[in-house]
């Protein structure tokens, strides 16, 4: 109100500024979700360093992605590193404790299919054996830019969700 120019009355200027759009509640919710991605890191090995490196880039906050300390407040679980038989139950319960809707990013060769430890006795051959994965970010380790690209892909996926 205070910025109204003296050439027009307050009512006129409000009318000029008012506009509207039609959408559905789901689309609005998806738009909100893809614009504020709260990430919970599940970093078990070296890829975790690259993930935190991406945190230092300002691009991540431009995309609305923020790292959260606890998974119960997050929408996206980023698995960075190898999952072995001992961490697999932990990963599953972390995933189950996250509120719906939730998405999972597998970061690095180890999380995708076991990577260099693929034939090892203890490493799970891909975290998609344990939790459903939405986006795979490849590399050993992936560059921070690749992780940011993964976030962009996830945003596209959230927007394109088809509802029954």
């Amino acid at each position: 109100m205070s910025e109204v120019s003296d050439s027009s009355s307050p009512e006129q200027s409000r009318e000029q500024k008012t506009s509207f759009f039609v959408t559905t509640m789901e689309k609005l919710a998806d738009w909100a979700r893809c614009s504020s991605i709260w990430i919970s890191p599940f970093a078990t090995s070296c890829c975790g360093v690259e993930m935190k490196q991406a945190d230092l880039y300002s691009e991540l906050e431009h995309l609305g992605a923020v790292f959260k300390k606890h998974h119960s407040k997050a929408d996206v679980l980023v698995i960075a590193g190898a999952i072995n038989g001992k961490t697999a139950p932990v990963l599953r319960s972390v995933y189950e404790q996250m509120p719906e809707p939730k998405w999972v990013i597998a970061m690095g060769a180890c999380a995708i299919n076991g990577g260099v430890y693929n034939q090892s006795y203890s490493v799970v051959e891909g975290c998609d054996k344990v939790v459903p994965v939405d986006v795979y970010v490849e590399g050993c380790p992936p560059k921070p830019e690749a992780f940011i690209q993964g976030i962009i892909k996830l945003k596209e996926k959230i927007k394109r969700i088809e509802r029954q």
Partner: peptide
């Protein structure tokens, strides 16, 4: 070498 068990959900 490749172990005796594999984990899955």
């Amino acid at each position: 070498l490749n172990g005796s068990v594999k984990w899955s959900y």
